[in-house]
C-alpha cells in the first residue's frame, strides 16, 4: 500500500496496479510545481487546469510504461509540456499559419532580474540572461523543457535546422560565459 514514505517510483508502481491512493499522493507532491510551470507558459487558467488534469490522468494510464530508473519529476513534466503544446496548437487551429500562442517569450532580461540571479543553482539562469532572446528560447525549449529539436521547432514555429544552428550557437556562447 502506498503511503507518505513511498518514493515517487514506488507510487508509480502502485499506480500501475490501479492504486488510487498512490495517485493522490503523487498529485499532492507534484501538482503545485507542474501547475506553476504551466502557468508561466500559458496565462489561461482553464487551459492550465485541463493540461494538469490530462497530465495526471496520462500518468495514471501510462504508469505501467514508466521505467523504474527514470526521474518521476522529469517524466511528469515531459507529459505536461507536450500536452500543453498540443492543446495550444489545437486551440489556435491547424489552418492558422502563425501560431496565436507563445510558449517562450523572446524578451530581454531586465537588470533587476539579473540582480536576483544570485544563488548557486542559477548558473544556467545567469548564462541565459546574457544570451540574446532568440537563442534563449531555443535553450528553454530544449534544455529546460526537454523537448527534442523537432518538437522545439514546432513549438517555436521555426524550421528544425534553425533550432539546431541556434542551439549550437547558444552552446558556444554559454561555454564562453561559463569558462
Amino acid at each position: 500500500m502506498a503511503d507518505c514514505d513511498s518514493t515517487d517510483a514506488d507510487l508509480i508502481n502502485a499506480m500501475s496496479e490501479h492504486d488510487e491512493a498512490a495517485l493522490r499522493l503523487l498529485y499532492g507532491r507534484h501538482a503545485a510545481w507542474v501547475s506553476a510551470r504551466l502557468r508561466r507558459r500559458c496565462a489561461d487558467t482553464d487551459v492550465v487546469a485541463d493540461v494538469l488534469q490530462d497530465t495526471f490522468v496520462a500518468a495514471w494510464n501510462g504508469a505501467g510504461k514508466f521505467r523504474g530508473d527514470g526521474d518521476v519529476a522529469a517524466w511528469l513534466w515531459g507529459i505536461a509540456i507536450r500536452r500543453l503544446i498540443s492543446r495550444l496548437r489545437q486551440a489556435s487551429g491547424r489552418a492558422a499559419k502563425a501560431p496565436t500562442w507563445k510558449l517562450y517569450d523572446a524578451v530581454d532580461v531586465s537588470a533587476e532580474e539579473t540582480a536576483l540571479l544570485t544563488v548557486e543553482y542559477s548558473d544556467l539562469g545567469t548564462a541565459l540572461a546574457r544570451l540574446s532572446p532568440e537563442l534563449r528560447v531555443v535553450l528553454q525549449a530544449t534544455v529546460l523543457d526537454g523537448l527534442t529539436t523537432r518538437e522545439a521547432a514546432r513549438a517555436l514555429n521555426i524550421p528544425q535546422g534553425t533550432v539546431k544552428t541556434r542551439l549550437v550557437r547558444a552552446r558556444t556562447r554559454l561555454r564562453e560565459e561559463l569558462a
Binding site: M1, E17, H18, D19, E20, A21
Partner: peptide, 11 residues
C-alpha cells in the same frame, strides 16, 4: 473502499 475503488474486484 475509496482506496481500492479503481482496483479490479477479482483482485
Amino acid at each position: 473502499l475509496t482506496a481500492v475503488a479503481t482496483k479490479r474486484v477479482h483482485a
